[in-house]
Design a binder for these strands. Sequence first.
RNA 1: UGGGGCGUGGCCAAGUGGUAAGGCAACGGACUUUGAAUCCGUGUAUCGCACGUUCGAAUCGUGCCGCCCCAGCCA
Length: 584
Amino acid sequence: MDNADTKRDMDDRTQLNDEELDALATDFIRTAIVEDIRSGRFGGRVHTRFPPEPNGYLHIGHAKALAIDAGIAQDFGGKFNLRFDDTNPVKEEEEYVDGIVNDVRWLGWDFGDEVLFASDYFEQMYAWAEQLIGDGYAYVDDLSPDEIREYRGTLTEPGKDSPYRDRSVEENLDLFRHMRAGEFPEGARVLRAKIDMASPNLNLRDPVMYRILHQSHHRQGDAWHIYPMYDWAHGLEDSIEGITHSLCDLGYRDHRPLYDWFLDRLGIYHPQQLEFARLNMTYTVLSKRKLLQLVQGGHVQGWDDPRMPTIAGMRRRGFPAEAINDFCDRIGVSTSNSIVDVALLEHCIRDHLNESTARVMAVLDPIKVVIDNYPEGQVEWMEAENHPQHPEMGTRMVPFSREVYIDREDFIEDPPRKYYRLAPGREVRLKSAYLVTYKDIVKDVDGSIVEVHCTYDPESRGGEAPDGRKVRGTLQWVSVAHALDADIRLYDRLFLAEDPEETGEEGGFLDNLNPDSLEIISTCKVEPSLEKAKPGDRYQFMRIGYFCTDPDTTKTADEAPVRLVFNRTIALRDTWAKIQTQRP
RNA sequence: UGGGGCGUGGCCAAGUGGUAAGGCAACGGACUUUGAAUCCGUGUAUCGCACGUUCGAAUCGUGCCGCCCCAGCCA
């Protein structure tokens, strides 16, 4: 242990009693951490990190990693770092770091208000590389990339030593310094760790530590001509920051011996790497490469397209951050490759939205209902509750008049069995208003319904008849004279196949795209209280689904929106639709 | 034909030698001024397979089968 570590021990020991520790051992990683705390390893500290490369946007798989990394730090009263693993200047962009920082904040994780960058440690890494060379553990190799691949051997055959493997320390040091100075072309030489060219673990066959890249770095500019490789850099970054548990996905399991090897050779503070399975989910793809293809191929409108599984996309879609985190907690942490049913995510979304969202009335496909016995020109403002289970969310006033819109689905001239909405001979309730009874319909020349005529029961104001008679159907409605127009975007799954990659073809997942994943409806009518809707506001459109106001909703100077645009976050569960598909 | 990881009901997932938690989904029913929500109920799970150890095995051993990852100067 070095001095810095000793100091950390005194400052950052977690304060948890036995009972609390037991309660935290909920999965194999947390169990390992609890053991480390009890044994005094790392001085009882817990310090994790999330190390994205800034070469794309975060998606729900990263939300899982964050929930594990940051969630553990939070639960154990430890620390958490957000660190950009920006060791490859050719792939990384500033745009992505801003996007990622924003996403991590939005998800609610506290990274101590300081964003860290691996590139800030380049100088220290370089010094350690010289130390390794000095100890005979690293050498400069002049082999070309092709030759290095040949010399590496195959899965079943051992590799063979590079002819440059036994250069003297002096020559290695000299060459390495000239590499740093930018005196060789890209690809001419690399620094390699001297481990074992016959190792059954290919990662240990003298891995490359530094490559020459005459590229400017988004933060370092042209200061460097050599850049560290992941395997060399990552453990050093963790060590420098005093990370205790370096959590990553199973793909890095085979890299752990390397992680340990470098730290041990250097003799510096040594965190524990642990691996967990990355997230896979039905009806979507979760790899940066494929997501990039969707964006660049114009299959979606950008990284924040509401159909994307990106954090930005889900945010725009209206998914609450807490619901996403809840999902991440509920899928568990294990080491088995699994594909989580997207229905669980949808359940979490509905669960949170049901609790938090105010109810309003909207009609997607309007059909006019005329209430023949209601006085022409009269308007009554009906009080409507904002949430049936949460009276503390208050009420709002909704205008009622002689002509209202209802949804075309809510009237059928010749209804099927068990249909209990409006139909000839039926009485239904207009939510929070009156009971109305069917009288007649008006059709146009092609026979399609233009108007439904009803009468209302003046005694049923508020929706309850004094004689106590029951009606089965309750419909949402919007007063024709007061209705606001709105565009509504209905989103469906981006892919038709549960596993979009099942085609086998490379890139074949695009064949499984759902051509109807976006439907825009511009005929919608919504209640006037929505005039004040701001981008990001979320509502339940009663009997339809959860919606949020899209940033495309623009405001005029006096704050009134020019055009309301709502995204359907997710539809309400629809038992009736299920009954219908079962018995057509 | 190397190395690593994994296989528990449709999907996740507890369980670590004492006789299979929980969630999602599905299916019934109750309630309902959202066919929502809520509530109640419903699953004989050959614990990948086969042998073995044991009074007793999802848990230990051996063998087999299947799936995933690794041969970037990407992370």
